[in-house]
Design a binder for these strands. Structure first.
Lengths: 168, 168
DNA sequence: GTTGAAACTCTCCTAAC
DNA sequence: GTTAGGAGAGTTTCAAC
């Protein structure tokens, strides 16, 4: 992807609601050009959507924790993500390498809710849990690398080949 | 916080760029009323900003990993977050309870970059690392609980007392 | 705290270069 | 890629309830 597109994405990650006028000024293009690039980024799925950054403390969810889970019976079908999807306290679910199967990020009001959610996780997905409580969050969800020129970066597919493109 | 404000926050978390017209229709208020509530939520810091949700694969950052760090010398001043802030590959930094001091979420292009970032983390903050590679992400950054009525939720401070309020 | 209307800005499309 | 124009929609403020 081009450098100017990365700059647009970085700007939209910092402020997803800024006007195309501001965006155009930041990346040094006209409003029309920026508008067209943003539409293309959205169509290509590079920009998947927009969301508000919220204060979880203000939402009465001051306690964050990571919950590593592994199944009681590893031979059973592994559908923990779908079995846990109904729990609104789970912010994110990562399938991970290592001893654990999944790593969950949960946000609750306090220890009492955490205990309840852990019980619900265990019973819903038939798993054991190992919980790491977050004490503070120095930073979270920072904008991705603005990066002008990739130097040491390896590629996952041969150069010149693009996924899903047949020439149109 | 009121139920209607929570509904607004939930809607903005799902789509941070929707118009006040749509927002008003969803929560059953007029456009002006919704607009005023959103402004108050922003001023109170409940809504801290807006950001684009991006595809890290499309940004050539397909490899996500959790990096748990702990210092070589625990007696040294603990300023790892600031010493690591210059690394754009670090998405989030959590101070955690347990054996480790911090848990980092990093996003890179591949194993080669991961190795480089790990070395930079170790040298920048004088820490050891234990890395957990993310294989896939079933879901991430889900909207927080919409919640109409808190039942089992405990409070972190006495009812009727609000932080920073002296009567204004 | 809510409503409705007016003024303004921005988005979005079109056309020509 | 750029500039220019313009219709429509959305944002923001204002006065009144």
């Amino acid at each position: 992807m081009e450098e100017i597109d990365r700059a647009i994405v970085a700007a939209l990650t910092t402020d997803g609601r800024q006007s195309y006028t501001d965006l155009a000024e930041k990346v040094g293009l006209s409003v029309s050009a920026v508008h067209q690039r943003v539409r293309r980024l959205e169509q290509r799925g590079v920009v998947k959507g927009y969301t508000a950054r919220v204060s979880f403390e203000a939402l009465d969810l001051p306690l964050t924790a990571f919950v590593a889970i592994r199944p009681f019976d590893p031979s059973q079908p592994d559908d923990a993500p779908v079995r846990l999807a109904h729990l609104p306290e789970i912010d994110s679910c990562y399938s991970v390498a290592g001893e654990d199967f999944y790593l969950l990020l949960v946000r609750v009001a306090g220890p009492v809710d955490l205990e309840r959610v852990l019980q619900e996780i265990r019973t819903s997905a038939n798993v054991t849990t190992r919980t790491t409580v977050v004490l503070s969050t120095p930073y979270e969800g920072r904008p991705p690398k603005i990066s002008g020129e990739p130097s040491t970066r390896q590629r996952s597919r041969p150069a010149g080949e693009t996924a899903g493109s047949t020439g149109g």
